[in-house]
């Protein structure tokens, strides 16, 4: 496989900077989404009175559904943006 496909564009032992950069972008994107979910689902599910340190049953169930729903919204918005093209971003 080392002399076929896109693998061929990397010199042996060298670093393909473009591929690195894409991977790093992907990690940053995932981290950003994760942080937004943590924050949004905290706002939606956790009561800010903090009378105990454990998650109660209701909070736990709420978190599970909240994360799933956020993923669904992420998917819907992704489809929308793909169909709209990228013509809203200022350069």
């Amino acid at each position: 496989m080392s002399f076929l496909g896109r693998g061929a564009s990397t010199p042996a032992g060298g670093v393909n900077h473009e591929r690195m950069e894409m991977a790093i972008n992907e990690i940053e994107m995932i981290t950003d989404v994760f942080n937004r979910i943590v924050s949004s689902c905290h706002n939606k599910c956790i009561s800010p009175r903090y009378s105990e340190g454990d998650l109660n049953k209701g909070e736990s169930v709420c978190i599970d559904r909240c994360v799933a729903k956020f993923f669904e919204v992420n998917k819907k918005v992704g489809e929308k943006l793909q169909s709209a093209g990228a013509n809203a971003a200022p350069s």
């Binding site: 956790i46 903090y50 454990d54 909070e59």
Partner: peptide, 28 residues
């Protein structure tokens, strides 16, 4: 007391979100 509970709860919240996130990401 409120701060300690809040930090505690945040960690548990964050861990639970992480677990669900990993599952859903693997599915996707």
């Amino acid at each position: 007391q409120c701060v300690m509970n809040c930090a505690d709860k945040f960690l548990k919240h964050s861990e639970r979100v992480g677990a669900r996130f990993a599952e859903l990401n693997a599915d996707a």
